[in-house]
Design a protein around this nucleic acid. Sequence first.
DNA 1: AAGTTTGTACAGTTTGAACTTTACGGACTA
DNA 2: TAGTCCGTAAAGTTCAAACTGTACAAACTT
Lengths: 161, 161
Amino acid sequence: MQTDENRETLDHFHYQMISEFSKTLEMFSLNTTESQLFVILYLSNQPMTLDDMKNALGKSKTAMSNSIRTLLDYNLVERVWIKGVRKDLYQAEKDLYGKFMKAYVNRWLDAIDRQKSNLKQIENDMKTNQILSSKQTEYKLHEAIKFHNLLEEAFVELNKK
Amino acid sequence: MQTDENRETLDHFHYQMISEFSKTLEMFSLNTTESQLFVILYLSNQPMTLDDMKNALGKSKTAMSNSIRTLLDYNLVERVWIKGVRKDLYQAEKDLYGKFMKAYVNRWLDAIDRQKSNLKQIENDMKTNQILSSKQTEYKLHEAIKFHNLLEEAFVELNKK
DNA sequence: AAGTTTGTACAGTTTGAACTTTACGGACTA
DNA sequence: TAGTCCGTAAAGTTCAAACTGTACAAACTT
């Protein structure tokens, strides 16, 4: 049986966990709500509906709807179906670390790759254009591309484990 | 000698490089101005003053002053002294990749460690408090701490290279 | 078919980060 | 000593991200 005092203390611990844990998740380019939402789902024993989340975080249903779709995009949360329940149900993916790393690292790699391509394009344009006294710039550009390559290598490595 | 046309085309390439390269730097928790500023310094042959930067980016001197101090904090930029020059001069650190990784990874590790400590504190408090039916929460909390440990390991690894 | 319920699109509002302007103390100069 | 220049602190402004409330389409119920 659960006393009121227990309930309160437990809630208090939940608050603290949400508060601290979500700070870490925010470092993975998730915003505050998305992070808190994930922690809430992570701590919950059962899948939750948008209304559950709304009550848990004290924010609008629209905010929940938007954030949950971001989390779905990142593959950090999944929709589950339970017979007889009409509302959509969501739960946090297992394998916290793996999913996070994958989601995060892949987004990074995509972005780095995009910028690297653009820099290479600039490099080509410069060569075609052959401007005087651009040796210094060409060199720096080349260095910048190398920088992107190193970043890519490091992050690919991070994902392998 | 440099023709006007050359000058313009070169500027155009500079713009593009600043635009693209700074996007990558922004992923390292630098804001737009800090990133652009770093690229400007990186591309420059000589050290620059606050006024030079101001002109290069078309923003206020205060903005430059603030951003440059952030970059100094992160050890991505250094102040240099040249005899006879009264204004402060700054230049980008060499070893682009190494400095960046160090700056970035260390900030991350600091943050992760802080949150891990806080979670551990909560864990202790929970054990002391001994609430009924908190087994589930205790387990999740433990998992969250493990998650932080894995993150730390991964990022420490990233820094070793 | 009419009436609910649920999730999301959209428009308007709030809030905080980033920026600018102004002000000022300290360092140099004549 | 008075005057100038430089960097930064402080206060006010701007703008985009995040949030809310409203409206609506689709799915379901009776």
